Simulated assay, not measured.
Amino acid sequence: MRIRDALESDAEALATATGRPREVVRNMIHDRSVRVAVEEEGDGNGAEEGDGDGAEEGDGDGAEEGGGNGAEEGGGNGAEEGGGNGAEERDGDGAEERDASAEVSEGGEGTVRGFVAFDVRADTVHVTDFEGSGSTVRTLFEEPRRFARREGMGVEVVVPNDEETSEVIEASGFAAAGRGPRFEGRRTTRYRIESEELDEGKDE
C-alpha cells in the first residue's frame, strides 16, 4: 500500500467511500490537499508500510491555497467557519461502516483504502475529512503532521462525539483540546497536536 496525492480520477472512488456526490468530491480534491492510500494488485502489506511520498512531492500546496474554499460546495467546511473539521463531511454512521465502504472503492490506480484531506487556516493545519480503517487513517494522518512540522504549525481535527474515531485520532498523536463547535445538533470534540510535538520520531 502506498500514499499519493489524490487525482481527479479518484473522485468516483472517494464518492463511493463517503456517500457524497462525485462533483462535491471533485471540488474537494481541487480545493484541498488530499492524500489517498492505495492498495495495488498483489499488495497486501497494509497501510502501515505506505511510503508517504505524496506529502514530500505534493508538499501540501493545495493546503495553502485551498484555505476553506469548499464551504459553499460541500468540500469540507461548516462547523468551524469553513475550516478544520471532518465532522461535517461524514455521515456519523460509525467507523466500521466507513471502513467497509472505503475497502471496496476502485480508484485511478488500484483500490483506494482511505484518504485524508487538509488545509491551512490561521497558522494551523486543519484535517477537514478522512476515511479508512484504523491503521490506514494513522498512516494517512502522517501527511498533515509532516506538512505542519515543516511549516512550524499545529494540527487540528474536530469530530462528532458519536463517531468511533477517538482512539484512532489519539493513536495518531492528537490530544483532546476541548469542545468543538456543534454540527447539526451533534456535540464534537476538538483534537490538536502542537507544533513542538511534531518531532521526527513521532512521524517515522
Results as ranks from 00 to 15, higher is better:
Val25Cys: 05
Glu204Val: 06
Ala175Asn: 14
Ala100Glu: 15
Val25Arg: 04
Arg32His: 03
Ala37Glu: 11
Thr139Pro: 09
Gly110Cys: 01
Glu8Ala: 11
Arg35Tyr: 12
Thr18Arg: 05
Gly46Met: 02
Asn161Glu: 15
Ala79Met: 02
Ser195Glu: 01
Gly70Ala: 10
Val158Cys: 06
Thr165Lys: 01
Asp91Cys: 05
Val34Asp: 06
Gly86Ile: 10
Glu80Pro: 13
Gly60Ala: 13
Thr139Leu: 01
Met1His: 10
Gly54Lys: 04
Tyr191Gly: 00
Leu198Met: 03
Gly185Pro: 14
Glu143Asn: 09
Ala37Leu: 02
Gly110Asp: 08
Gly180Gln: 07
Thr165Leu: 01
Ala176Glu: 13
Asp162His: 09
Asp162Val: 06
Gly76His: 11
Gly178Trp: 05
Asp129Lys: 08
Arg26Leu: 02
Val112Asp: 07
Gly19Val: 04
Thr124Cys: 08
Glu106Arg: 03
Val155Pro: 13
Arg2Cys: 07
Ser101Trp: 06
Gly82Asn: 12
Ile169Glu: 10
Ala47Phe: 07
Ala11Phe: 02
Asp123Tyr: 15
Ala176Cys: 00
Ser9Ala: 12
Thr18Ser: 05
Ala11Met: 06
Glu96Gln: 10
Arg2Leu: 12
Gly68Pro: 15
Leu198Asn: 14
Val157Glu: 02
Glu12Phe: 00
Glu197His: 15
Gly44Asp: 06
Asp129Gln: 09
Asp93Lys: 03
Glu197Thr: 13
Tyr191Gln: 00
Asp10Glu: 05
Asp51Ala: 11
Ala6Arg: 07
Arg32Asn: 14
Asp199Lys: 15
Ser101Asn: 11
Gly201Trp: 11
Glu200His: 14
Ala148Cys: 15
Glu142Leu: 07
Leu7Lys: 08
Asn69Leu: 13
Asp203Tyr: 11
Asp203Leu: 08
Asp93Cys: 01
Ala175Trp: 08
Glu142Ile: 04
Ser166Gln: 09
Asn69Ile: 14
Asn27Arg: 09
Thr111Val: 04
Val104His: 13
Gly82Met: 06
Gly154Arg: 09
Val157Trp: 04
Gly67Lys: 09
Ser33Trp: 03
Glu200Tyr: 13
Pro160Lys: 01
Gly185Lys: 13
Val25Met: 04
Asp123Arg: 15
Ser33Asn: 11
Phe183Lys: 12
Ala177Gln: 07
Ala102Asn: 08
Asp10Pro: 06
Ala102Lys: 08
Asp31Trp: 05
Arg179Met: 00
Asp51Glu: 08
Val157Asn: 05
Gly110Trp: 06
Arg20Phe: 01
Ser133Val: 04
Gly54Ser: 10
Gly46Asn: 00
Gly94Val: 01
Gly201Ile: 05
Asp10Leu: 01
Gly76Thr: 15
Arg32Ala: 15
Glu200Lys: 14
Val159Ala: 01
Glu89Cys: 07
Ala95Gly: 11
Arg149Lys: 14
Leu140Gln: 14
Thr124Asp: 03
Glu72Phe: 04
Val112His: 08
Ala122Gln: 12
Asp10Phe: 11
Glu164Asp: 14
Gly108Glu: 01
Arg179Trp: 01
Gly114Phe: 03
Ser166Gly: 07
Ala6Trp: 03
Val116Gln: 01
